[in-house]
Write a protein that binds this DNA or RNA. Structure first.
Length: 886
RNA sequence: GGCGACGUAGCUCAGUGGGAGAGCGGUAGUCUUACACACUACUGGUCAAUGGUUCAAAUCCGUUCGUCGUCACCA
């Protein structure tokens, strides 16, 4: 059947088709798992973005990479599932909604818990739709039918199941402990939710007098206002200076309290005065020390960070920093403050709102971690879970070995409310999977639920199995759990990855994924983290708008090396865009030449040397892609498809085929096109995981396809294809062409001057025979007028310029192409002129006055000129020598 | 302070025992039957410094300098 030419738009314009193609895929259910039980399964869960966030480059990266993998496995025929979803992000979301309220002059307390949650759900719905459409826009082939939210019904059930189970196993407890508390967010935080930043502060030296009037001691502190919580002063028991004073009593300045001097090994003899005031309720070390010595804990703060009633009246209700100034002033006035020096120290800040964290004594819920940590360590030791790159294993192990109990209660409203009820009558506590209506113990219906909610990560850590139906034994769970790999940034290794492994081991006895690939972080060109406050972020949607989703995906994959952060700016994406354009134009070229062509069966054709060569290159590229993707070396896989398509297919194969494609013999043309389209079709499949949209759009136009690209078979490496002889032959031809092109370029012989060339292979072999048989092709690559393949080594080459390569030499009859005498004269002129200029420059540069007194820019400019002249002279002399040599 | 990473072409980075590479940039030329988002060629680097192991080191080891990350911290 004779085909008609197909005309594609002149340039690659992703906007013309990206949304349409994505819609078609989604519509046709292409993202759904095949459910084919006969095939291997491949499953991945998406790291759920915060529902109130906006997609940033980090999301783009850790959704692009799984997309590549998922598409690759789908094309291998695997039963693939990629589960998308969003996270309720307790603190972050609550903050967002509170900001909205503030604009209306309201606080959450004013509108109450129920109304606040209603508002929050509304905000969640709106933002969810934005996030989901952004994920679609960047081309993620996740299965939307499996989408989950950490607070949807199923996942909430999973959270309860997890909490109650852990409680039943004795792994959850409640108690009064010193926790990290953010006064602004009004909630406790886990240890790893605190970020430490060095800030300048002061170290105050304060005198505490002995109660017996025998003098005073001096302590050093950065936080003088906490002195109201002091319950002792500690010295090191080994400290000779203070051995005699241990046990004495001190008067605490500004108060009427008396505190003892105690001995404790944690005190550093060398630091400060060697005396430390002990404030158990406001410092983790002091808290430990207080426990050891059975000291009371005096909490001096209100939840909002102001001083409370345990402090002298004067300071009550002042914010800590204000109180500090007042205390310092009073200490100074009363002669207690004797020193004050600059002191930089690390201070904890809230990872959500960057407020200074207070160690705060309060009643909180905790998870015991040591046992789970051991299981998670074993999972790694047994190779149940593997880290890429390997270096993260150390970090993982170190964290697990030093783990502390996890504070999971948050004094927020947005989140999973802790499933604990208290009886108002008998005071008993109940921990329940289902909401109770009456007290188990006394039967009273006057019960109330715990008001705290759970840490967001308490739901995220169940994600790989809660999204598949756990705690129920669903078909999805049976089929797709454990998942195959997890891709996310290393910044949430502890928050999320480690905890998922712990939860999964605890509840299911296996690792939730086989592999963890931890990506680097996306940074700007200056190496700074992209952030809203710096305004240096790149919006993935803007990238899509300017260059297309494929360009973004390809660039990210191509730039993704193991363990390195990725520095990018908007221009970085030109690379992917150019590649897509190249693909587009190659396809356009072939399709526009389809007129009157009848395609044959590529499998039954007798292949020529070049045909075998290109199939061999394709086969090898496929091997590299498989190798790269199997080991999470996305850059190597992307590079392989790039080089194959551009350098092998476009630059050599398509160019080589032009003669046949324009042959007057229709049979020759049909044959050429049959193979060209077959290679194109397979190339599109090869490239599809990296540039899905453009390959699908082109694929849909091909006359030799009947499926969609997304559902086509990946052209996997076929060990039976071995055309290494053809590989050598074509390599030799390419070498000959390069040699001639070098000569032409060196002597600046314009293309329209057809040159006379003798090619002399070292040996008479398949390559020389091929070149002899394809002289026309070779001539066109060399733009040669006359070409002799001189296997017999008989041609007269005395007049030609030789150039030698590996296994081959070429001789170019330059004389015919260039007017030697004129060229020599021209070069001599040029050398002369440049030497004069150089002499002038040198004169300036050798003048000390010039060097010492002229502006540095001027000197530098002269030096640049010198280098330029010298280079020009050297080049001209090189040419001159060449021309004079024959 | 512990642990770790990095330092390769003007820029961004690959490369892990035997050839120093890519993309972008620069230079020169080319509208050579799709692609100027192209083609061709060229340019450019004591692979941070130093010592060692080796027949052979950008690659392995030691030390130094510089940059960064991370964990833990002294009040």
């Amino acid at each position: 059947m004779k085909l008609k030419a197909i005309n594609l738009e002149k340039a690659y314009n992703p906007k013309d088709f990206e949304d349409r193609i994505y819609g078609q895929w989604k519509e046709s259910g292409s993202f759904r798992p095949s459910g084919d039980k006969g095939a291997a399964k491949y499953s991945v869960v998406m790291p759920p973005p915060n529902v109130t966030g906006i997609l940033h480059m980090g999301h783009a990266l850790n959704n692009s990479l799984p997309d590549v993998l998922i598409r690759y496995h789908r094309m291998l025929g695997h039963d693939t599932l990629w589960v998308p979803g969003t996270d309720h992000a307790g603190i972050a979301t609550q903050n967002v909604v509170e900001r909205f309220l503030l604009k209306e002059g309201l606080t959450r307390q004013q509108i109450g818990r129920e109304a606040f949650l209603k508002r929050t759900w509304e905000v969640k719905e709106r933002h969810h739709d934005i996030i989901a459409s952004q994920l679609e826009k960047i081309g993620s082939s996740c299965d939307w039918d499996h989408e989950r939210f950490t607070m949807d019904e199923g996942l909430s059930r999973a959270v309860r199941e997890a909490f109650v189970t852990l409680y039943e196993r004795g792994l959850i407890y409640k108690g009064n402990y010193l926790v990290n508390y953010c006064p602004k967010c009004g909630t406790a935080l886990a240890d790893d939710e605190v970020e430490y930043q060095e800030i300048p502060g002061k170290l105050y030296e304060v005198r505490y007098p002995y109660s017996d009037g025998s003098g005073f001691i001096t302590v050093a502190t950065t936080r003088p206002e906490t002195m109201f919580g002091d319950v002792a002063v500690a010295v090191n028991p080994e400290d000779e200076r203070y051995k005699s004073v241990v046990g004495k009593t001190l008067d605490l300045p500004l108060t009427d309290r008396k505190i003892p001097i105690i001995a404790d090994g944690f005190v550093d003899i060398a630091f400060g005065t060697g005396m430390v005031k002990i404030t158990p309720a406001h410092d983790p070390n002091d808290w430990q020390c207080g426990k050891r010595h059975n000291l009371p804990q005096i909490n001096i703060l209100n939840p909002d960070g102001t001083l409370n009633d345990n402090c002298p009246e004067k300071y009550r209700n002042l914010p800590a920093l204000v109180a500090r100034e007042a205390v310092v002033a009073d200490l100074l006035a009363q002669g207690y403050l004797i020193g004050e020096k600059e002191h930089n120290h690390e201070v904890g800040h809230c990872y959500r709102c960057h407020t200074v964290i207070e160690p705060y004594l309060s009643e909180q819920w905790f998870v015991k971690m040591d046992g789970m940590a051991r299981k998670a360590l074993d999972a790694w030791k047994n190779k149940e879970v593997n880290f890429y790159p390997k270096k993260w294993e150390n970090t993982y192990v170190h964290w697990l070995e030093n783990i502390k109990d996890w504070c999971i209660s948050r004094q927020l409203w947005w989140g999973h409310r802790i499933p604990v009820w208290y009886c108002d009558k008998c005071g008993k506590m109940m921990v329940k999977r289902e909401d109770p209506t009456v007290c188990d113990c006394c039967g009273s219906d006057r019960i109330h639920q715990e008001t705290d909610v759970l840490d967001t990560w308490f739901s995220s850590w169940l994600w790989p199995f809660s999204t598949l139906g756990w705690p129920d034994k669903t078909p999805d769970f049976d089929r797709y759990f454990p998942t195959d790999c997890l891709i996310t940034g290393y910044d949430i290794l502890f928050f999320w990855v480690s905890r998922m492994i712990m939860a999964s081991e605890e509840f299911l006895g296996k690792s939730p994924f086989k592999d963890v690939f931890l990506t680097g972080l996306v940074r700007d060109k200056l190496g700074r983290k992209m952030s809203k406050s710096l305004g240096n972020g790149i919006d993935p949607l803007e990238v899509v708008d300017r260059y297309g989703a494929d360009a973004m995906k390809f660039t990210l994959a191509h730039g993704c090396t193991q363990g390195q952060d990725m520095k990018i700016d908007m221009d970085s994406f030109k690379m992917g865009s150019k590649f897509c354009n190249k693909i587009w134009n190659a396809a356009r070229y072939l399709l526009m030449n389809l007129e009157d062509v009848t395609l044959g069966d590529p499998d039954s054709l007798e292949l020529g040397v070049l045909d075998k060569w290109i199939y061999n290159r394709l086969n090898q590229a496929a091997a590299k892609v498989a190798e790269g993707l199997d080991s999470y070396k996305f850059n190597e896989a992307a590079q392989a498809v790039y080089e194959f398509f551009w350098n092998d297919f476009c630059d050599w194969y398509v160019e080589s085929s032009k003669k046949d494609l324009y042959s007057t013999d229709q049979a020759v043309k049909d044959r050429a096109m049959t193979i060209l389209l077959d290679v194109l079709k397979k190339s599109l499949s090869l490239m599809h995981p990296f540039v899905p949209l453009v390959t699908e759009e082109i694929y849909s136009k091909l006359p030799n396809t009947d499926t969609s690209c997304i559902n086509s078979r990946f052209p996997s490496f076929n060990p039976k294809i071995d055309y290494s002889d053809e590989e050598k032959t074509v390599g030799m031809m390419q070498e000959a062409v390069r040699l001639v092109r070098n000569v032409r370029s060196d002597l600046q012989i314009p293309l329209e001057r057809k040159i006379h060339v003798v090619v002399r292979p070292d040996e008479d072999n398949a390559a020389s025979a091929f070149m002899a048989a394809n002289k026309d092709l070779l001539s066109s690559f060399m733009t040669a007028g006359e070409l002799v393949i001189d296997t017999a080594k008989k041609a007269d080459i005395s007049e030609a310029l030789p150039a030698a390569g590996l296994g081959i030499s070429v001789y170019v009859f330059v004389r015919e192409a260039v007017d030697i005498e004129a060229e020599i004269a021209k070069l001599r002129d040029e050398i002369e002129k440049n030497r004069k200029s150089l002499a002038q420059t040198m004169q300036k540069l050798s003048n000390e006055n010039f060097i010492n007194h002229a502006k540095p820019e001027a000197v530098e400019k002269e030096q640049q000129k010198r280098a330029e002249f010298e280079e020009k002279i050297a080049k001209a002399e090189h040419h001159l020598n060449l021309l004079q040599s024959f």
